[in-house]
Computed example of a mutant assay.
Amino acid sequence: MPVEWQPVRQSRTHELVLQSIEERVFAGELKAGDRLPPERELAPVLGVSRSALREALRVLETIGVLVAQPGRGPDAGARIVRNPDGALGRLLRLHFALGSYSLEDVLEARVVLERSSFEAAATHASAADLDEADELLARMAEPGVGVAEFNELDTRFHVQIARSSGNELNSTLTSAVRESVRPLILRALEEVEDWPATAAGLGADHAELLRLVRAGRGPDAADLVEQHIRSLHGTLVAEGD
């Protein structure tokens, strides 16, 4: 039987640059805080054009593992960083908007993540962690706080509890999942008939959640945060109908 040949995949140049940089990260040769050589030096070493190198660096910047500082001086150039929260949130928000995930998917992911976070925080959170969460609640309770600011503080409160649980990945995922539905949450809250009453009710939930975490009552905090999330989810569904 004659050999059946298949076309080979030809990688685009910037993908080869990405692969080269990734290999050095995986090998431990590049780590957070390290600077890449200037473009004029790195491009010829890799055997690529400076435009292909820039395209690869833009991809790395988008996914939160590199920051590029233009200009001259000690701070100029590209530096490896660890900044997954915003990048992952943007990615999930786009996929949610495109229909890759349903609102039900997001709900169940949040429930699993936040039940785990609040229960673990009741055991692992430091007093300083919880004091920071308390400061966020105080700002949420200030008279005249608007929907957008309240929602931002609300997100930071949930992420702070996730961070205080001792699991950084949980914190990143909590932030990303919440970010994916931020536009929906904002629209839903902006359309409530009595915003001050709604804000007061949400604030009361948050205050009780923090009280339970401080008291070390992890299972009770987990149950309440699930109830809190599912209640908000009902508002989002109603807003989308």
Rank of each mutant, 00 (worst) to 15 (best):
R156Y: 03
E190V: 06
A188H: 10
E190T: 11
A188V: 05
A128G: 00
A78R: 07
H124L: 09
G218F: 08
Q10H: 11
A125H: 10
R82W: 15
G86E: 14
L92H: 06
F96S: 02
G47M: 12
L209I: 05
V225A: 01
A125V: 13
Q10W: 07
F118H: 05
N170W: 12
E179Q: 12
L18Q: 03
S100T: 12
R35P: 07
A138C: 03
V237I: 13
P74H: 05
S20K: 01
E168D: 13
E114N: 15
L42R: 03
D105I: 12
P74M: 06
V159P: 01
V8I: 09
R217D: 10
A222L: 04
V45K: 13
A97V: 04
F150T: 01
A52G: 10
S11R: 06
E152I: 10
G47K: 14
T155I: 01
N167E: 14
I21Y: 07
A215G: 07
A43P: 10
S126K: 00
E104W: 02
A215K: 14
T123C: 04
A122M: 01
G201M: 12
R9P: 02
H124P: 00
L88C: 09
L92E: 03
F118W: 07
A141F: 00
A127P: 00
D223N: 11
R35F: 14
E132I: 08
G89M: 08
R79S: 07
R79F: 12
V3E: 14
I80N: 06
R50Y: 01
V67D: 09
R156L: 08
L186N: 11
S100A: 14
H124I: 06
E142K: 04
F157C: 00
R217H: 10
P219G: 08
T172Q: 13
A188N: 04
S102V: 01
R50K: 15
Q69S: 15
T172P: 03
R139D: 00
R12C: 08
P37K: 10
P38C: 07
G99A: 04
G201N: 14
I185P: 00
A97T: 13
V45P: 00
I185Y: 03
E23W: 09
A27F: 01
L53P: 04
R9W: 05
V59M: 08
L36Q: 05
R24H: 15
D129P: 04
S102C: 05
R90K: 11
S126E: 07
H95K: 13
A76G: 12
L57R: 04
L210I: 06
F157H: 00
L169M: 15
D129H: 10
E239G: 12
E23I: 01
A148Q: 10
S175T: 06
F26R: 15
D205V: 02
A162Q: 00
S11C: 13
V192P: 07
G216N: 02
A204D: 15
E29F: 07
E4W: 04
G64W: 10
G218H: 08
L186Q: 11
V59D: 09
